[in-house]
């Protein structure tokens, strides 16, 4: 056996796996080669030192921290999102919007056709669902949008919304709209709730 082969076998420390013949050959070489014999002793010693290295324990809170991270991780996992949109909502949304538009139109056209002879002042926005007090006699009362108080930060006041609606519909006389100045001075604005 040559030194190169002997050094490889010694360095790998696989002597135990060697066949009987190769083992005998290696032993014979080591007996006659001081350098390879030295390498074998060094390898055996370094291997022993490596095996004797003390095992270091992780910090005592390792398990606790890991559990915490695992629970955080499992909470942060993306929730499976239903890829299909909620199609079943679509007909309801459309029909609700259509109904809302119809009621608003009717409310504006019929409810604001003009004050009754007994009333001298234009109607104010009603606060609750109620028959329009200004409905012409002989006609069924039209439900007016229910109005609730909201914070003053609402971008459009009810009168502006009504104005906008009126400008779109083009059927409501401007003088039948509520008094904008009076409404604006009110600290709490009102706006129609979607119905």
């Amino acid at each position: 056996m040559r030194c190169r082969m002997a050094r490889t076998l010694v360095s790998e420390g696989d002597e135990a796996r060697l066949s009987a013949a190769v083992g005998a050959e290696l032993r014979a070489h080591l007996a006659g080669c001081a350098d390879c014999a030295r390498l074998q002793r060094e390898s055996a010693l370094t291997r022993q030192w490596l095996q004797e290295l003390p095992i270091r324990e992780p910090a005592p809170h390792f398990d606790w921290r890991l559990k915490l991270r695992l629970s955080q991780q499992t909470q942060e996992l993306p929730v499976a999102v239903d890829p299909t949109p909620r199609r079943w909502l679509l007909p309801f949304t459309v029909s609700t919007a259509a109904a809302a538009a119809l009621v608003l139109t009717l409310g504006l056209t019929l409810g604001h056709r003009g004050p009754s002879p007994s009333e001298s002042t234009p109607p104010r926005v009603a606060m609750e669902t109620s028959p329009g007090p200004w409905a012409p006699a002989g006609r069924p009362a039209v439900a007016w949008p229910r109005l609730v108080p909201v914070r003053a930060s609402t971008p459009l006041g009810p009168e502006l919304r009504l104005e906008a609606a009126a400008s779109i519909l083009g059927s409501v006389p401007a003088d039948t709209l509520p008094d904008a100045k009076r409404q604006r001075s009110d600290p709490i604005e009102t706006m129609p709730v979607r119905w």
Partner: peptide
């Protein structure tokens, strides 16, 4: 955990 920690150390 211990062996992995030592390897990483």
């Amino acid at each position: 955990k211990v062996r992995l920690y030592n390897y990483l150390l």
